[in-house]
Computed example of a mutant assay.
Amino acid sequence: MKHLSTTDVTPRALGFAMPPEWEAHAATWMSWPAGDDLWFGHLDAVRAEFAGLVRTIARFEPVHLLTRDAQSRQDADERLVGANVTFHDVPLNDVWIRDNGPLFVTRSPGDVSFVNWRFNAWGGKFDFAEDDRVPEAVAHILNASHWDVPVVLEGGALEIGGAGVALTTRSCLLTDTRNLGLDAGKYADWLREYLGVSKLLWLGAGLENDHTDGHIDTITRFADERTIVTSVEADQMDPNHAVMTANLEALKGMTDAHGNPFRIVELPLPAEYLEGAEGRLPPTYANFYIGNGFVVVPQYGDPNDARALEILTPLFPGREVIGLSSRAIIEGGGSFHCVTQQQPVGTVWTGE
């Protein structure tokens, strides 16, 4: 296993790029919830929803589940009996592996590696020392050579659409609490060399009271290379209305890798206001996760739950679109995409 740095040849130079989520997975990586204080006294309900999510994913592809202590391991074991899950004991702070986990890259004819970006808990908002080490734990488990880079980047801040196109938000990436002095042009350089992004598209901001500063994966997602699903808020008095409307208008003027306009599909936000321990929660249907033959969509017991499934189902032909409860998980500020990380199909690259 090799650790490559910014002084070594880049992934792009070796033909690696991050594939879109809808390409075939070897497995999904997740971290089991722990710490009742992190979940404001709702840990048991969160674990029940997590168990449903893990079991659903494991029907379609293997799940690698990280557990931070003996109690977490025992709890997960009991809830997931018979599921296609491999457990790994790894020190953790929290569950948001989309943001602190490795970002996998692939190349023809089938090599898989990853990039280890820095993680600082969305600009230093929470404890993160253990979570920042998760990619190294994954590297040890897989015996994977990979790149270590000094740039802070969360996986939820970047939406890969295939053909070198990706989406992000200015409100997140351009905060000075992540990479002071790194502007849009320099971000584009890093993402081109280390994830193969040749066309980076910028939206303005995300949802109100999103502690990630507006991750793209809570509002706007690719369904395929030409189709973008974006969140909208009909209530003009809601603070999300103006932001989501501005994003929608910006998307209508963007083009794909070939200069063609995207097909834009509007996805309503949940209709009901949800309050958590720290103010308004950011529930969204855009935080779905795409896997081998399935898409799991968060549900909140909201009047728009069924409508969201109706909109998303025809966008994923050949995949079972499944609604699962995320009413407890959203108390932590995220949902299904935030707690999953896909490992693409391929042979793990050893650097040879």
Rank of each mutant, 00 (worst) to 15 (best):
H25G: 06
A24T: 13
V63N: 00
V54W: 02
T28K: 05
I57C: 01
R55E: 12
D36C: 08
L65G: 12
G52F: 14
R55M: 01
A34Q: 12
E49C: 04
L38I: 15
V54F: 02
A34W: 08
S31R: 08
V63I: 12
D44T: 04
A58D: 10
P62K: 10
D37H: 09
H25F: 03
F60R: 08
A58W: 07
R59W: 00
F40D: 10
R55P: 09
P33F: 13
A26M: 08
A17V: 07
A17P: 08
T56S: 11
L53T: 04
A34T: 14
V54P: 02
V46T: 05
G35W: 11
G52Y: 10
S31V: 15
E61M: 06
P20E: 05
P20Q: 10
G35M: 12
V46Y: 06
L53P: 00
L65E: 10
A24N: 14
F50D: 07
P33G: 14
A27E: 11
A26C: 01
A24S: 13
W32K: 08
W29S: 00
A48I: 11
P19S: 04
R59Q: 07
G35L: 05
H64S: 09
R47V: 01
P33N: 13
F50Q: 13
I57N: 04
V63Q: 06
R47M: 01
A58G: 14
E23G: 03
P33Q: 13
H64G: 10
W29C: 06
E21P: 05
D44G: 05
R59K: 12
E61Q: 15
H42C: 13
A26E: 09
M30D: 00
F60S: 11
A45I: 02
W32R: 02
P19E: 14
E23K: 11
P33S: 15
A51L: 02
W39E: 03
I57D: 03
G52E: 13
W29Y: 03
V54D: 07
R47S: 05
L53Y: 05
H64W: 14
S31Q: 10
D36N: 15
H25A: 08
V63T: 07
E49S: 15
A51N: 09
E49Y: 13
R55L: 08
W22Q: 02
E23I: 01
A26V: 06
E49L: 09
L65Y: 03
H64A: 14
A51G: 12
S31G: 14
V46D: 00
S31I: 12
V46E: 02
L43Y: 07
A24E: 15
V63A: 10
P33A: 13
P62W: 09
E21C: 05
L53I: 12
D44H: 05
G35Q: 14
V54M: 05
F40G: 13
S31M: 12
M30N: 06
E23F: 05
W32P: 00
A34N: 11
F40S: 09
G35Y: 15
W32Y: 02
L66P: 00
L38K: 15
G52R: 14
A51Q: 07
E23V: 07
I57S: 01
H42V: 08
P20C: 09
